[in-house]
C-alpha cells in the first residue's frame, strides 16, 4: 500500500507561488485561508531558499491525536482527511501541527472561527466523490479520478512532487546524486557554517 507524501526540493523551488494559486483555484479555498504557502528562508540574502509547505499527511498525525471530537481519518493511501461536520473549530490541531497546516475561515464578526480547513491532497472528504456537496465543503477530488494534487502536477520546475513516499524518495535521491551534494537549506552546514 502506498503512503502519499509531498516533497519540496529547495534547490528547485523558485518561489513562483503557482502551487499556492493552483490550490486556491482548484479547490475554491475561502478568502483568508491558504492550504499551501511558500516559505522563503533567508529572504533577500544571497543563497535564499524557498519551500512550499502544506499538510504533510503525517503517518502518525498529531492533529488526529489531539482532536477532541475524533474527526480525522487516514485513507489506505496514507492521506489524512477530516470531517467538517464533526469539527468544532477548537484549534487544537493547529497547535499540534508542526507545519501550521490547519486553517480557519472567519465565520462571523469578532474573529469567530469556522470549521478547520486544510490540504486534502486533492482527495475531498467523507462525502460522495465528485459531488457538488463535496466540492463546496472540501474542494476537488482528483485522487478518485486517478490524478495527483494539482499543486505538484503543475509545478514548473518539478520542485514540488507528490506521490508514494518511496517513489518520490527515489526521485529525490537521484537528483542528489546528479548534483553531487545535498541541498544545504538545512542540515549540518546550515547549523554549523564554516568560519
Amino acid at each position: 500500500m502506498a503512503r502519499m507524501k509531498f516533497l519540496c526540493d529547495a534547490e528547485r523551488c523558485i518561489e513562483c507561488n503557482s502551487c499556492v494559486t493552483a490550490c486556491k483555484n482548484e479547490n475554491e479555498v475561502p478568502w483568508g485561508v491558504n492550504r499551501r504557502r511558500v516559505v522563503v528562508l533567508g529572504d533577500g540574502e544571497p543563497g535564499e531558499k524557498s519551500i512550499s509547505v502544506a499538510c504533510m499527511h503525517c503517518t502518525d498525525a498529531p492533529c488526529a491525536a489531539v482532536c477532541p471530537v475524533d474527526c480525522f481519518y487516514t485513507t489506505d493511501d496514507g492521506i489524512v482527511l477530516h470531517d467538517k461536520d464533526l469539527c468544532i473549530g477548537c484549534g487544537y490541531c493547529f497547535y499540534a501541527c508542526p507545519f501550521g497546516a490547519p486553517q480557519y475561515p472567519q465565520e462571523q464578526a469578532f474573529g469567530v472561527r469556522g470549521k478547520m480547513d486544510k490540504c486534502t491532497f486533492c482527495a475531498g472528504g467523507p462525502l460522495p466523490d465528485n459531488t457538488d456537496a463535496e466540492y463546496t465543503k472540501y474542494g476537488r477530488n482528483r485522487i478518485s479520478e486517478g490524478k495527483l494534487p494539482l499543486c505538484a502536477e503543475m509545478c514548473a520546475t518539478k520542485a514540488l512532487i507528490a506521490g508514494d513516499g518511496d517513489t518520490i524518495a527515489d526521485i529525490y535521491r537521484e537528483r542528489v546524486l546528479q548534483r553531487g551534494t545535498r541541498p544545504q537549506t538545512w542540515g549540518w552546514e546550515t547549523a554549523y557554517p564554516s568560519g
Binding site: M1, A2, M4, C71, Y73, T75, D76, D77, L81, D83, D85, L86, A123, G124, G125, P126, L127, P128, D129, N141, I143, S144, E145, G146, K147, L148, E153, I161, A162, G163, D164, T167, I168
Partner: peptide, 19 residues
C-alpha cells in the same frame, strides 16, 4: 464520522502511473 467512499476504491496503481 461517516465512511469516505474513497476508501472503497483504490487508485494506487493509477496514481503510481501518473507519478
Amino acid at each position: 464520522g461517516p465512511s469516505d467512499p474513497l476508501l472503497e476504491t483504490s487508485q494506487t496503481a493509477a496514481l503510481a502511473d501518473r507519478l
